[in-house]
Design a binder for these strands. Structure first.
Lengths: 360, 360
DNA sequence: TTGAAAGCGCTAACAG
DNA sequence: CTGTTAGCGCTTTCAA
């Protein structure tokens, strides 16, 4: 019985990769026994078990997951399909998701189908061929996407940071409404009375939800929503600067706080305020949305911002998916809470300097 | 012969998923024949072939890739292991890589092991179990990472946007030196004579390479490298602002151009210049590095910047990997060319307005 | 031109 | 306690 056990077996396909047959041979037991020993099931003498394990170690045996999956009912594999080419929102979600799934021994096939239905279908076909146990779909959030067509409707599908019209689908999204309420209530608690909302294009569902949160928080506090204290523009810094110009030019009453639809708008607004001699937060407080460090920390002063907790979203998606793979049937739209990260742009008392560093 | 073919076979593991056995039964041929028909090999009467294909269609048959891979020498699957938690650099690379591989029917397992050797080993074990045909490693570029230990050294491994000390490894990185030369030569061509370099922490290898490119481009043009016209700081906007303060305070000769280590530094510098009444590019031209749209387009004016062509890097990685899987042995460090994207910050003549929009 | 049968590497039921 | 064996779904000789 030499070291070259695998030569005798003719298993040359994966060279120097020992099979369980090799392990059994080297341990001098049957292949069934080896399996039991390695999987820690069945009744075996401790001695035999050890002998097999030792043999496996020596041969560097690693079971072939594909062969295993042929038996088990699970491939221990899921797919994630993304159409968000930018990846800024997708990535934290993915990270947390992958981490959660890895804990359960599930590997993730990642596919990118940027806005191309043909490529998307191709990817799904491929994934179905790989017998994935589940699928996570991520998208730009602009509009609801068509549901993924899975034959038999037997495979769990979760939409994260995206929605579909299929009422039987499970969708996980941040609670935009609640996030807005959080931001606005923070400003109100700081004594602000004339709060303007500067936000992005109306075609985003998130814009409407955040608007509603903004309006409801105001009226709940008995603050009037003054005409002109709301502005629908782009998601850009420039849009933030333009909004400030509009809101602060002229003789009308000026806002004492800005609640912005994202951090880019907030940053642009902050710059514009500073440039017209207004102090943030003393004269005008600013709250952003996204808590995107690149913007929020680089702004002067650093921005208070609503955090969508994307990692939590990813983690939740992982958990739901695992549950669904285990047989649970989940559906509906689940909105996960946002949180507020307070920095100097809204808090006169907070003078702690936040550091900013990024890699190149 | 009813529609419920799969019930007779007892193949209940993947419910409503037809096997080739089902297809054969429905077509009234043997399972071997069905295989030949579906894979378009062997000699078969056209009629039989059609009959089988029709049956497969009706049953929604999709071959089980895991079962196939048990035979073929390839799993048609690769892994990508990333330790760049930010993802800003990794993502475009990944996208292009995945696209390239998908064209060849190869699916990508994506694993994130942020700076954690234990998690990394776990992931690699898992991937080896899945019998991946190859592995791509991505990392922060700060330092060379230890080589991945693959038993038997038989599986292709490529390091992208990262390097390892193993001389037998293949590493793909952007040509930082050349990129710097590109940026500096552009400034020189614009008539600038006193060019300062503001860059990031020296512990990054990229910093040294870009410094060398900067210095060589200057001396090639016969321009002296003046003391103090170089500054080693952070990768942040604040660092850019501080550098400008240092370089432009006092009575010494001021630079007429800044070559910056990344776009954040460049943006900070641009802001600081504007705030002290200097016009960009008329008084001082600015060139950044990374061509990160979020920074480059939002800056006032938009930044000329060196683009590392990360998508090209990813595409190249895909091609090399496919070649290696096919048996080629590649090694060494390959440096892929950068390119320059000219915008207003360096080009007095260029007044075209670049638009800026991002999603929330 | 088609069918039968022997595996790929592994697990699990059933004997011994 | 251990070995034998029948598959998982598919491919590929080798016969017929």
């Amino acid at each position: 019985m030499t070291d070259k056990t695998n030569i005798e077996t003719g298993a040359e396909r994966y060279p120097e990769r020992a099979t369980i047959r090799d392990v059994a041979a080297r341990a001098g037991v049957s292949i069934g026994t080896a399996s039991k020993a390695l999987n820690d099931n069945g009744r075996l003498k401790q001695e035999t078990r050890d002998k097999v394990i030792a043999a496996a170690q020596e041969l560097g045996f690693r079971p072939n997951a594909m062969a295993q999956s042929l038996h088990r009912t699970k491939s221990m594999t899921v797919g994630i399909l993304t159409t968000d080419s930018v990846g800024r929102f997708t990535f934290p979600i993915f990270e947390a998701l992958e981490e959660r799934l890895a804990e359960h021994g599930i590997a993730v096939f990642m596919c990118n189908a940027t806005e191309d239905p043909a490529r998307e279908k191709q990817h799904i076909d491929q994934l179905l061929g790989k017998r994935i146990d589940g699928l996570v779909v991520t998208a730009r959030r602009m509009d609801r996407r068509p549901a993924i067509a899975v034959p038999g409707k037997t495979m769990p599908v979760i939409y994260v940071f995206s929605q579909t019209d299929d009422p039987d689908a499970l969708c996980l999204v941040p609670d935009d409404y609640g996030g807005a309420v959080l931001g606005v209530e923070h400003l109100i608690a700081g004594g602000r009375k004339r709060i303007a909302h500067i936000t992005g294009p109306e075609r985003f569902e998130a814009v409407t939800l955040r608007q509603n949160g903004f309006a409801d928080a105001l009226s709940k506090a008995g603050l009037p929503q003054i005409g002109g204290f709301y502005r629908n523009g782009q998601w850009s810094e420039q849009s933030g600067r333009e909004a400030v110009a509009e809101l602060f030019d002229g003789e009308q009453t000026h806002p004492d706080a800005l609640f912005c639809g994202n951090d880019q708008i907030a940053r642009g607004a902050t710059d514009a305020l500073r440039e017209r001699g207004l102090r943030v937060p003393q004269d005008v407080a600013v709250v952003g949305f996204d808590n995107w460090d690149v913007m929020a920390l680089a702004a002067r002063p650093p921005l208070t911002s609503v955090d969508m907790n994307l990692r939590a979203l990813g983690r939740a998606a992982g958990e739901r998916l695992i549950a669904m793979i285990a047989g649970e049937r989940l559906k509906g739209v689940e909105r996960l809470p946002c949180s507020l990260v307070v920095r100097q742009s809204s808090d006169p008392g907070n003078s702690k300097k936040t550091t900013e560093e990024n890699q190149s």
